[in-house]
Simulated assay, not measured.
Amino acid sequence: MKNAGMAVFVLLTAAVLMFAGCAGGEAELGSEENPIVWSFVPSGEMEQVAAGADEIASLLNEETGLFFDTNVATEYAGVIEALAADPPSAHMASLATFSYIKAADMGVAEAALVAVRYGSPTYAGQIIARADSDINSVADLKGKTFGRPDPLSTSGWIVPMLTMKAEGIDYQTDLEEVVDTGSHNNVVTAVYNGEVDAGATFDDARGNVEDDLEDVREVVKVIATSAPIPNDGVQFSPSVPEEIREQIVEALLAIAATDDGQEALSTAYSWNELIRRDDSFYDPFRQTLQRAGMDVDDIQ
């Protein structure tokens, strides 16, 4: 009996120690206690992006059994910082082209999916001004105020800055002021209201504010359109295990093929479809930056 009692004591002690170890350690990624954090950037209206993101997370939970926590950052750099944290405070992201390249070059993001809009995995940027202004070309931007969504926005700043540079305009000395508006929609609204002389957005962000500004297409004109730019998509922190990534990617592809999934993706980012693409998809844009002599680390 003494030996039996000792055996029971040893087993109970081991069980207590095992429980204590589990309780003290971090819960498995994707569990309710340790959800997968997916950070979105403020492309359109933050409330709309957030609503779509929440619905996507709910559909992913139903499809995979994994738990997700979504958020919409106030700036692009905040998402990169979240990916770069140790441990990461974001496990997934939906970064636009330039901010993804910056994060990838830092080793904190890896591409998995690219969005398709209107049948294409690329889009264009545009520079806009009021129709009643004297701004009719990029050269006319000299001495003007300019609105951008974010310093790391590809279509809202990086490409327009390259375009201005090609026209001999140095934004630091030749523009009167550069104003950060917080989103593409806000750039259109700022130009419409005359708060800035011109600005840049994706093509055609005017449609996003048309419900509130019915005559926006008459009041705000497009003075330049860019070459194709890779769409945004879904990227993962390198810390996310490959099997979890693949489970999420397969689920997103399945969700994107359903009516509910398409509605959620459209609400968040106007995504119509998702396709697999790795980091090499962004190489042509990297080459564009290199030809312009631009270093991603130097752009603010």
Rank of each mutant, 00 (worst) to 15 (best):
S94T: 14
L29S: 05
Q247M: 10
Q262G: 15
D211T: 14
Y192V: 11
T173C: 09
A227I: 06
S280L: 10
A85Y: 07
F19P: 00
A139Q: 13
L17M: 10
K102N: 07
G119S: 09
F285P: 02
I275R: 11
V191F: 10
I223C: 00
I223T: 04
E218A: 15
P87T: 08
P87L: 01
L274S: 00
Y118K: 15
V138Q: 10
V240S: 01
L59N: 05
A227G: 07
G168S: 01
G30W: 01
F19R: 08
E243G: 00
F19M: 14
N71K: 13
F146Q: 00
D298F: 12
T288F: 11
S94N: 12
D170V: 03
V187R: 00
R291C: 03
F146T: 07
V188K: 02
A51N: 11
V209W: 04
L83Q: 02
D215T: 12
I158M: 03
G25S: 15
T258M: 06
D174R: 05
A292H: 11
A4M: 12
N185V: 08
G65C: 11
D298I: 06
M161W: 07
R245H: 07
G65W: 04
G25H: 06
D283S: 14
P230Q: 00
S133P: 08
G194T: 03
L141V: 05
D279K: 10
L252Y: 03
A53M: 06
G156R: 00
D278W: 07
E167S: 11
L66I: 11
S89T: 15
A20C: 10
Q287H: 14
E75T: 14
D140M: 03
Y100Q: 04
T288A: 14
L83G: 06
N136A: 11
Q172K: 15
S133R: 01
N71W: 01
L289A: 04
E55R: 15
L253F: 01
L152W: 12
S99M: 09
D86K: 13
G125I: 05
F146I: 02
G168V: 02
Q287F: 08
D295Q: 12
G194V: 05
A96C: 12
I275K: 13
A57M: 13
P238S: 05
A53G: 12
F285D: 07
I135Y: 04
E55H: 13
A103R: 04
P230I: 00
V196W: 02
E243W: 06
D232T: 07
D132I: 09
G194I: 09
T97I: 09
T181Q: 12
S270V: 08
S89F: 08
Y76G: 03
L60K: 05
A4P: 07
A85N: 10
V209A: 06
V41L: 13
S226D: 00
Y192S: 01
S120Y: 10
D132F: 10
A268P: 02
D134G: 05
N208Q: 15
A200L: 09
S58C: 08
A20L: 15
D212F: 14
A27G: 12
S270F: 11
D134T: 06
N208M: 14
R286P: 04
E218R: 11
I80M: 06
D295E: 10
A23M: 12
T163S: 08
W271M: 05
Y123A: 15
V114W: 00
E32N: 06
G233E: 05
I275H: 12
D278H: 06
G119A: 09
A200P: 02
